[in-house]
């Protein structure tokens, strides 16, 4: 007769060991995040001022800021959302509701591939397709590049979220005599809205952090620019420029801009969570 007592003790030991191991991993992840955030905060906080937030970049020693970069990032992200969200959500709905054929399977596979492609390739693609024919870099090209990055992410998360809506809810609507398209529009979409919004938010957060595709497409600008057909500044490219500059004061400003970027993404997060909080 094996010693039940000792087997039991060993099992308990292994169990606590495994729990401790996963806990350690979780702590590690959190600590890394906290270190990054606090480092950015410590480095960046000293350079932030109202002036910094509204000024355009100036030669070293004359101060300067990221006002035009914030505006540029905002405009290009807005354009990307305007194009990317409807197309992405629409494609996701198609994949989830009618996606049981070879075409949908192909689209799904391509979307997954597109998600995995390095964003710089999207930049080159838009460069060839838009920038070269137009003869110059522009906010439009930047926004398009961001939209292309956004679409597959939004499409796939939308699809997953719609698939999570219980079948019984659709049946309830069908049983009332609702046609399929109304069921999707009236019942399924609202039920999945929180999830779809979360997916959209993730995509926005992702494109807000993109630098590489903008380098080719929107380039940069030292001025406030409201026209999408002109080269446009963006936070990420501005950070890149400051960070690669030779002067310490520039590095400081890069940290400050980074802090602003992280803060903005956090703000978007909170805002979307608030707007899509469970109303029903």
């Amino acid at each position: 007769m094996a010693d039940n007592e000792s087997i039991h003790r060993r099992r308990k030991l292994v169990s606590s060991l495994m729990t401790a191991l996963t806990l350690l991993c979780a702590v590690f992840a959190i600590v890394i995040l906290l270190i990054i955030l606090s480092y950015i905060a410590v480095q960046g906080l000293s350079s932030i001022s109202l002036q910094f937030l509204i000024d355009t970049p100036k030669p070293v020693g004359e101060g300067g800021g990221i006002g035009n970069a914030i505006l540029g990032s905002f405009l290009m992200t807005a354009l990307a959302c305007l194009i990317g969200l409807p197309i992405g959500i629409g494609a996701g709905v198609y994949l989830a509701e009618f996606g049981d054929n070879w075409f949908a399977k192909t689209v799904r596979f391509l979307a997954d591939t597109l998600i995995g492609i390095p964003s710089i390739i999207v930049g080159i693609f838009i460069y060839t397709l838009v920038v070269l024919p137009m003869g110059r870099q522009s906010g439009l090209a930047g926004g398009l590049a961001l939209a292309i990055i956004m679409i597959p992410i939004v499409a796939r998360t939308t699809e997953e979220m719609i698939r999570l809506v219980p079948h019984s809810m659709r049946e309830g609507a069908l049983a009332l005599g609702a046609p399929q398209w109304r069921v999707t529009l009236d019942i399924v979409m609202p039920a999945a809205s929180t999830g779809i919004a979360t997916g959209a938010m993730l995509a926005i957060a992702r494109i807000s952090g993109e630098t590489a595709p903008l380098l080719f497409t929107a380039l940069n600008s030292r001025f406030y620019n409201y026209f999408m057909d002109q080269p446009m500044a963006s936070l990420t490219v501005q950070i890149f420029n400051y960070a690669t500059g030779p002067f310490d004061v520039e590095h400081k400003m890069a940290w400050a801009a980074t802090l602003i970027l992280v803060g903005l993404i956090l703000l978007i997060n909170i805002l979307v969570r608030y707007l899509t909080r469970r109303k029903f």
Binding site: P166, S168, M169, E171, G172, A173, A175, D186, I187, P190, A191, F280
Partner: peptide, 10 residues
Amino acid sequence: FQKSNPFPKT
């Protein structure tokens, strides 16, 4: 239906 399935509405 077996499981009550109200819509996500009022």
